[in-house]
Amino acid sequence: MKIAITSKRLNYRYQIECADKGVVGVYGISGSGKSSLLDAIAGYHEDRLGIVEYNNKELKGIIKCCYMSQHPILFAHWTVEENLQFALTHTSQNSKDKDQLVQRLGCEKLLKMYPNQLSGGEKQRIAFVRALLQIEENSLVLLDEPFSALDKKMRKIALDLLEQYKQSCLILLVTHEIAELYQVADALLYIKNSTVSYQNSIEMAMASGHESLPVASTVTIDGQPRIVFAEDVSIALQKNPESSISYQLESHITALQTQTNVTLVKLSYSNEEQFIYARLMTDSIKKLNLFAGKKVFACFKCSNFMD
């Protein structure tokens, strides 16, 4: 996908290049222009100048896409069932797919209800089901904080569903939950002042430390890839069997990057193939006499990962 667009009225300038498949995370502080980026791609801005290209086709005007806005819009005169049915008449998916999604997201009891009878979270679930139902081969999926009102369990289910669909389409996902982005996204856009201030693959973005992007790495724990943030990692010179911290990876320091009183330490483990980061006070670096090449233990709690 290639985007090079501007708007005088909304004062944005977006320049983006990314693959035509997969999940692209969109991150930035509120008011930075994440939603207006999605709106612009959907074709909602009449004064948009420039081009949006997807699968080598130029997109003009309001395009057919799976758009889910921050405040999901359901049609008030229809029941939930009828709302979903309306989406079904415009997609190649069938009512079996609908039933499956409804069941996965626990929406069976909502089908007969009208949108004004639903809570915020229920609306989001229905809108998410509708967005997924619209997905066809090479669809463009624009999700603007789609899970903000969902609980942890639902978010997990929703993210798993995104993983399922991402092989066949391009998903742009706006969220404030950076851990979820790191987990599900293939690439990341960092939006600031209505421009893309940083874009890269998710691995590079996680290690970049760019502005408010927290540094993190993926660690496989019990066969599952988990996101471990640098600020959750500490360093010990010796393994401590008397600690509650169960993850104490034998590793050695490959790089140190000091920014006044905080230092980012890059560590490699399991035959130099894997990396993990630790964010420490610079004083601690001096106290422990840490330097590149030194053998240490990277320690982190993993109770966060227990579902």
């Binding site: 959907a42 309001i62 896409c65 806005s69 819009i73 049609f75 309306f86 989406a87 415009h90 619209q134």
Partner: peptide, 12 residues
């Protein structure tokens, strides 16, 4: 407009 745009995005 949002309602109309939503319907347009769906493909109606």
């Amino acid at each position: 407009e949002d309602t109309v745009k939503t319907a347009q995005s769906i493909g109606a």
